[in-house]
Nucleic acid binder design. Structure first.
Lengths: 325, 325
DNA sequence: TTGAAAGCGCTAACAT
DNA sequence: ATGTTAGCGCTTTCAA
């Protein structure tokens, strides 16, 4: 393997000059830099990051804790992050955690040997112990997605409450009489529901907590359950578009007209939501933009160009379509 | 920061014994190991991977080249890989490439300073130059997803041709008379179409190449175009489920009965394919299983436990649903 | 603007 | 089974 020493000999300078020409080009005379570049090209030199990080004490690794890669929302968020980091010297190390606190803790231990320059969490940090540990580590920590009141360090997230509020207000404008809410409890459910209550100006007539896997079938089942528990129901707000679409499909199977007899709304604006018939009214969140914002903010912090601002709320939009009339 | 030396002092042994107790526990007496473990726990020691990799010359980083994280198929494949690698000392470094050869090449340069122990590509390796470069590097390279005839090194992929063949045979069994095929050309289109031709026993009456973004609208547009170009058409095989669903939605808008007047089939078995009405006949591929198989195979290779087998074909299944009658 | 010397923290190679 | 010595390749610190 080619080493700095080899490049230095080729360029007729000392090793440290090669190092400077590559990582602090402005500290080296133009002419010298050119010589070094030529020598690098000729020898095919590639820096050894283990050696450079060991000596300098600066890691260029950012560890990315992801709960669920099969969720394209998160995938887009990671894409946004990666794009924001492109051209910088930082790289993302994957740490897959699922949604469990235990996995997060074991992944943290796995990742520590790399002395990450920062940590990004897609989804929330579950346990208080983990939060304390991270806070004590003096490493920038970025939380993404959920809008927590008390972030560990930095945060870019949507306000689920704001989304719920927008939908509540929409339900009021549509004058729905008997309203149900259904969502996963492992979700940002509490805030979303709180916002919904605020926008609606009252508690929904029925709140149905949902457990189990995220798929259409859960929505189909939820729809049946809601009809049984609240026969007068004329509008449902679901905590996810997949639930809403499932409910809509179930309504069609049961011959119940949407939105004539029953209005249905979702959350998340998945791609198919605008293409099913009727198209689903929902709240739109942009994972890519959020990830990008998080990456840019973190990068500024790492380059000490940050303004001290550490919390950003990503915008959320109500998208009114056919399913609410 | 705590160093091996500190742990060694605490445990009353030499630094190298600490190192061995942690990375080759079987080379150390049980009693000594216990002392070291206690000292590690007491001091909070975490190995410095930069130092260990530099000294040993062994990187524990595997770089993962991903073309598109927003695609949940790929997301699941990465999940499978990550799961296979869990508990090993290897970690995934993300390299986002898009579908371009240029991005792949620049990401390769980005990643080389980490001296990756292996490289995984989700999707194909585009340029011949890149293939040569990788081959000359003496690093295990895993290609995933597509089944190429001439892999750089290792491969776990679906046979798109096999999938096309299954669908062709299905179309024959259904006795469709006037058949169209539509797919993205940046896809595994050639092989899929070749297999389809083989299964069908003839060339389809129309082949429509599709460009642009992957979404329902492309399918809607494709459906209209096919009807115009081949008015007698009674069955279409799409190179992706999103196209098929789009086409189906367009058919409904135009009042064309599926499958009565027109049969529609897709490829990939996305979640919504089984939930739309009519449910879409398609080819099922399991990204997670594939990723897992790739990760396991690579791990065996890295641990020198491989059997020399370097190419695996993941199974692909025809799922017959309502959309083909 | 460039260079010389030193050492980051660990483990391979060689002893014992 | 354990210890001693040395050095992986780079960049910091200090000097010129």
């Amino acid at each position: 393997m080619v080493r700095v020493e080899d490049v230095a000999r080729e360029a007729g300078v000392s090793p440290i000059t090669v190092s400077r020409a590559l990582s602090n080009p402005e500290k080296v005379k133009e002419e010298t830099r050119k010589k070094v570049e030529a020598a690098v090209a000729k020898t095919g030199y590639v820096v050894n990051r283990f050696a450079s990080s060991l000596r300098s004490g600066h890691s260029t690794i950012i560890s990315m804790f992801v709960s669920n890669l099969a969720n394209p929302h998160y995938g887009r968020a990671i894409q946004g992050c990666a794009d924001a980091l492109e051209g910088s010297r930082y790289h993302l190390l994957m740490a897959q955690t699922g949604y469990s606190a235990k996995m997060q803790e074991s992944m943290l231990a796995e990742v520590m040997p790399f002395r990450p320059a920062a940590m990004i969490f897609t989804g929330r940090i579950n346990s208080p112990g983990m939060r304390d540990q991270l806070r004590s580590m003096d490493v920038p920590v970025m939380e993404m997605w959920d809008h927590t009141p008390d972030p560990v360090d930095m945060l870019v997230g949507f306000s689920a409450a704001e989304g719920g509020k927008l939908m509540g207000a929409h339900f009021v404008a549509r004058k729905f009489k008997s309203v149900a809410y259904a969502g996963w409890s492992d979700d940002d459910d509490g805030q979303r529901l709180a916002g919904f209550v605020e926008g609606l100006g009252r508690k929904p007539e029925l709140v149905l907590p949902i457990a189990g896997p995220r798929n259409f079938e859960a929505g189909m089942l939820a729809f049946t359950t809601i009809l049984k528990k609240l026969p007068t129901c004329d509008a449902i707000f679901f905590g996810g578009d997949d639930l809403a679409v499932g409910a809509m499909l179930q309504a069609r199977k049961m011959g119940i007209d949407v939105p004539g007899k029953m209005a249905i709304a979702g959350y998340g604006d998945l791609e198919f939501s605008q293409h099913v018939t009727p198209a689903i009214t929902t709240l739109h969140v942009s994972g890519y933009e959020m990830g990008r914002a998080a990456g840019e903010m973190l990068l500024k912090r790492l380059l000490k160009q940050d303004s001290g601002n550490r919390v950003v709320t990503s915008p959320i939009h109500l998208v009114v379509r056919e399913s609410t009339g």
